[in-house]
């Protein structure tokens, strides 16, 4: 195996894990509201900034700083639900979509404003250094931890969706009227959904941030842009399947990195072009997505 290939696979798995976390959040919110959440990755950048402030400026313990970052992301998700989504719940999908874009641009605006003097920041990794070197390629702890976190998150989500609260979320998404009739609070379920989606976004931001320097909008358009790849992963999952979002995220990450090795890399805007070509081919062959289960009618 060539060195380039090892780099591509390692980075593909790492980026793919970040995309999978983003895609899981996108699918969760899509199932609840029927809209794509533009703010999904800004939960991540905001959480990353919060963790950065706690660790680097307030000199908190790293673990506490991470917890703080995730908490800020979750609060942002809850506020988004309460202030934007709930008041607009009877509006059209387009209005809701614009609402989530508004949340994203507001968050980005605030980040730029607050980091005005020093736009470029650097977050230290959870553990410095590399766990191993394969064919001369260093595999950092940060990347391994990111993949492990995705595995833990996937198992936790699978268990959660079989628990009573997880079933209640699915029930409210599938048939809101009946959910209310059996006594499920659809408002609480909606808050819970946004809280979980925001936590997933926050994890994506906090885990991918230390890989590089970061700026405002890091996870949306910046160096760690994951919104478009996350959306692609969600589309591959038919926008509804959680296991599909996970597999889709990993696949998109690996295709992106392998693609960069191929002839396609010579096209302008390499990464995005490769993914668009890939998505187009997949959707032409399987319009319902790669990992979508057949939807059962009511």
């Amino acid at each position: 195996m060539s060195q380039e290939l090892v780099v591509a696979l390692v980075n593909g798995l790492f980026r793919g894990s970040v995309y999978a976390l983003v895609a899981l959040g996108i699918v969760l919110v899509y199932r609840a509201t029927g809209v794509f959440n533009f703010a999904q990755t800004e939960f991540g950048t905001t959480g990353l900034f919060a963790a950065f402030v706690a660790v680097e400026m307030w000199h908190w313990d790293y673990a506490l700083g991470l917890l703080f970052g995730i908490s800020v992301a979750i609060v942002m998700g809850l506020v988004t639900e309460r202030v934007v989504i709930r008041p607009l719940r009877h509006s059209s999908k387009v209005t809701l979509l614009v609402g989530t874009a508004g949340v994203a641009t507001t968050a980005i605006g605030i980040q730029f404003w607050l980091t005005n003097e020093q736009p470029i920041r650097e977050m230290p990794p959870i553990v410095e250094g590399s766990i191993a070197t394969v064919l001369g390629v260093a595999i950092t702890y940060q990347k391994v931890i990111t993949v492990l976190v995705l595995i833990v998150v996937a198992l936790a989500l699978a268990a959660f969706f079989r628990s009573p609260s997880g079933l209640a979320i699915q029930a409210a998404q599938q048939e809101a009227t009946a959910a209310e009739l059996v006594g499920i609070s659809v408002r609480r379920v909606s808050l819970m959904t946004w809280g979980i989606a925001a936590a997933l976004g926050g994890l994506a931001g906090i885990l991918s941030g230390p890989n590089d320097t970061f700026t405002a909008a890091f996870l949306t358009f910046g160096g760690g842009a994951a919104l478009l790849p996350g959306l692609m992963a969600a589309v591959l999952a038919g926008m509804r399947s959680m296991p599909g979002a996970l597999a889709g995220g990993l696949l998109v990450g690996i295709v992106e990195q392998l693609g960069a090795l191929s002839a396609l890399a010579d096209l302008p805007g390499p990464k995005a072009t490769i993914l668009f070509v890939f998505l187009l081919v997949v959707l032409l062959l399987r319009p319902e997505g790669l990992f979508a289960r057949k939807v059962v009618g009511a």
Binding site: L167, A168, Q170, Q174, E175, T177, A178, L181, V182, A298
Partner: peptide, 20 residues
């Protein structure tokens, strides 16, 4: 119109009926 939870199983639908 029944309004079942279509993508949940029979026993999950029943369990949710006892949510209260």
């Amino acid at each position: 119109g029944r309004r079942l939870f279509p993508r949940l199983t029979v026993s999950q639908n029943l369990k949710l009926g006892a949510w209260s």
